[in-house]
Design a protein around this nucleic acid. Sequence first.
DNA 1: CATGAATGAGCGTTCATTCAT
DNA 2: TATGAATGAACGCTCATTCAT
Lengths: 206, 206, 206, 206
Amino acid sequence: MARPVHRSLKEKQRQEREELILQVVEEVLLERGYRDTSMEEIATRVGIAKGTLYLHFTKKEDLMFAFFEREMQKILSAIEQPFPANMSAQAKLESIVRSMHNDPSGKRGDLLYILFHSEDFKIILQQKSATTLTRISDTVLLYLEEGKARHEFDPHIPTVIMLNSFFSVLSPRAHRRLLQSGEYSHEEIMRYVQRIYFRGIGGHIS
Amino acid sequence: MARPVHRSLKEKQRQEREELILQVVEEVLLERGYRDTSMEEIATRVGIAKGTLYLHFTKKEDLMFAFFEREMQKILSAIEQPFPANMSAQAKLESIVRSMHNDPSGKRGDLLYILFHSEDFKIILQQKSATTLTRISDTVLLYLEEGKARHEFDPHIPTVIMLNSFFSVLSPRAHRRLLQSGEYSHEEIMRYVQRIYFRGIGGHIS
Amino acid sequence: MARPVHRSLKEKQRQEREELILQVVEEVLLERGYRDTSMEEIATRVGIAKGTLYLHFTKKEDLMFAFFEREMQKILSAIEQPFPANMSAQAKLESIVRSMHNDPSGKRGDLLYILFHSEDFKIILQQKSATTLTRISDTVLLYLEEGKARHEFDPHIPTVIMLNSFFSVLSPRAHRRLLQSGEYSHEEIMRYVQRIYFRGIGGHIS
Amino acid sequence: MARPVHRSLKEKQRQEREELILQVVEEVLLERGYRDTSMEEIATRVGIAKGTLYLHFTKKEDLMFAFFEREMQKILSAIEQPFPANMSAQAKLESIVRSMHNDPSGKRGDLLYILFHSEDFKIILQQKSATTLTRISDTVLLYLEEGKARHEFDPHIPTVIMLNSFFSVLSPRAHRRLLQSGEYSHEEIMRYVQRIYFRGIGGHIS
DNA sequence: CATGAATGAGCGTTCATTCAT
DNA sequence: TATGAATGAACGCTCATTCAT
């Protein structure tokens, strides 16, 4: 029976197209922001009709959420690799920070910034309760607790507060403006910020 | 002469109304976000006609900026009080943090969050070059440098990076979600977060 | 009894104010055109409140019509002076043309142009059937017929058509653009245009 | 291949619709004038939604300008036909006058009148610098000069003044009111007015 | 499957007019 | 009589979503 083959061919094409769409979303999102990214423009840049876009994603929200998930997945897959057992918790977390910042386009910070702060998108996030996001968060939490157990970090500070601060200071978007000023390189900024954070939670400073 | 009295009465009423409008703005802004806050809805909730709103504020932008400025002024006036000369830089900064968090509604964090990240509002901020915002930032910068001079803080960390991190971790909006979870009180959260920050920049931990 | 005196005093003040208002109308009309002349702006420039304007003129239309009538009255009073009996019809008409063009501000052409062609104002004219306008028109008609009787003008051309053409070519507004180009002076333009018109209806050319 | 056929079908329908829209514009423009012609009303009368109107014309201005241009093009195409070499300049100009007046609806005069004198539309005309309008004007200018060269017209009268008077007296809108009175037919009026004009500039009277 | 024309609710803004003071 | 704050209908324009082809 040829059907399955065809179907998977179609399916493959479908996925390729969705991938293409999401790439275009990234592009337009960076140029225009969430609200001013119109379905029309995305479709046009992809080279398909507006209606076709709706065959892949039922609503604008869905499209954006799909894009968001893909980005989070990239971070997650970089994060969930097993670390050597004897690696310190801080080293693991530093590796995670690097993963969060190292994306090919170098624009992930901006993208997450746009999405996290779009008024429209926040609603979606609440509705869809992004599991990927949770898994990233859980991974960090795990290593923070590990660090506390190993006496690397101050056990008196609640882990969830450490966690929250972790994302506040170390997420790519926190230091956008400073980076744009050009005074310091991305690496310099991150080095200093990590020093503040890890010393802050009681870690050793390299 | 009754005139001046009348006028100041009118003027007083006018200010009271503007105050009322700004309160409603706060309310709607929290519920709907910047873009979905319509002039119509604000007017209706205040109990006036749309046109009346425009007697007080020429454009939606102006209304929003007025609201923003009022919030920033509240913070600034709390911040710019002179401190005793022998007070440590850290104590001064901790006092500033308290000022930033202590607002009656307890929602200032959310509000600034909404405004700072609205795609539309960012443009206004750039156009109007918010001086109040700059003055707040400058005040913090001043004490950070003072702290470095006094060897309270690590002189190897660039002050602008300390400043950026200050607002990243210590601004009211940074720990919104954690606060909403209800696990820790506002005071507890802030105590721990300050501990992380000040120890991070090399300060003494109380 | 002092009453009548007071009343006429009041009445006098009232008329003076109305005169002032109409002067301001002229000013604003020239700057902004009919539609963009707002009641607010008129009131402000006069130095009174918007509501006061409405005590003098019930509607914007009424105000504008009053202004229009005043202008037409000025033309009419210049026109209805008796001419010497032996004066030729053409000379009388040429005198009328001069009256229509010679106003102190030199802007009457523009004003009538604005009013005659405002979409809003046309409706008013139809409703109010301006009698002053009719009397001006009748005066011209009279001299055109006189001219035909005296064999100055071609008796084969219907007088109403002569009349219509009179206002088409000779009214101040007909040659605005040409005048603005600066190539010819007002006097030159009018001399040539009158030559065309009077020769056209069979008159002698001076 | 069905595509090209389909496309031209669509394209045809599109043009038909635009034609329909422009017809409705004519209708509403005559009833309401420029400013009071709302996009909503046009759409409703055409039987489409407001948004659909904007698929054809980006702005109200564009729609109105398109309508204006179409009218001017009709006149221009009627005017730019080559005339026999031995035809007199006056005969050519009379032919042009006929072209300007002969439209099926008989309302072109009113329409151009409305557009030319709308405060809003004047601005558009200046921005778009209507070339069609210029070409019509230039064509008339050409024949006026030809007439002067051939001693048909008075060489002492500046051509631009002749030109200006041409449009003042002979344009369809100049004698609207007279026509509406019903006393004379369109043909009669134009015959007399042309007699006045051409005799006025020194032409022979047929 | 793919299209893109069509929809229409919704927005910010203006201004002639009214009316309580 | 004079004020000017208040009104609210009306406008041009946008864009996510639908659906006949």
